[in-house]
Design a protein around this nucleic acid. Structure first.
Length: 201
DNA sequence: TCCCCGATTAACT
DNA sequence: GTTAATCGGGGAG
């Protein structure tokens, strides 16, 4: 097996990187030195030819980092309230990214509880907005290089084997339902509920 | 400049 | 099940 979590590793297409990120550790060092560590259990892939992707209409001030180097962080604000954390994939300028939707808290739970205002462990990182809040990630962290940052980085952890990964349609997105996907560790209690098929019109 | 809507969440009924 | 919270992109005027 080749080296993991290198620039080249992230330069592959989002639908390849997304399932390969399951089981990996996302590590955050806060300003006071506290370390928070979570294990990724749910991801979604976005490519620039996807109408649901922020890169679909080209580069703007908001999505600029999505066109940066693979392995960079792309953080955006959704509904004016919640931040979502993405890892840039594909070659620089491509506009691919993987949204990290949920994770299992491993370390630094006290700090995450403080950030989230709850002690329910399942409510800490289950959902993209919650995960970003737990790790105190907002637009100020947009563009961070996850391969060279002492504030936020990825560690190999233990990849989830293919037979323990489920592929579903993405959450809250109807467009591209047959071509773009969400990946989740099968049966994980730390993931968001698996979406039900789109009801008949 | 105005208007609509979205890769969401929590607090309602 | 429904809705408010509230920011930024994009298209219409």
């Amino acid at each position: 097996m080749g080296a993991e979590l290198t620039r080249r590793w992230f330069s592959r297409p989002a639908p390849i990187v997304a399932p390969a990120l399951l089981g990996r550790h996302l590590v955050r060092r806060l300003a006071d030195g506290t370390v928070c560590r979570v294990r990724i259990v749910e991801t979604e892939a976005y490519e620039p030819d996807d109408p649901a992707s922020h890169s679909y209409r080209g580069r703007t001030r908001r999505n600029g980092s999505m066109f940066g180097e693979p392995g960079q962080l792309y953080v955006y604000l959704i509904y004016g309230i919640h931040h979502c954390l993405n890892v840039v994939t594909g070659s620089a300028g491509h506009g691919g990214a993987v949204l990290v939707r949920a994770a299992e808290p491993l370390e630094g739970r006290r700090a995450m509880e403080r950030h989230r205002g709850t002690t329910d462990p399942r409510a800490l990182c289950r959902g993209p907005g919650r995960l970003a809040a737990s790790l105190a990630v907002d637009r100020g962290s947009d563009g961070i290089d996850l391969l060279g940052s002492s504030e936020l980085w990825l560690e190999p952890g233990e990849a989830v084997p293919a037979d323990r990964i489920s592929r579903t349609r993405r959450v809250g997105i109807s467009v591209g339902a047959d071509t773009a996907w969400r990946w989740v560790e099968t049966g994980s209690r730390w993931a968001t509920p698996t979406p039900t098929p789109t009801p008949r019109a």
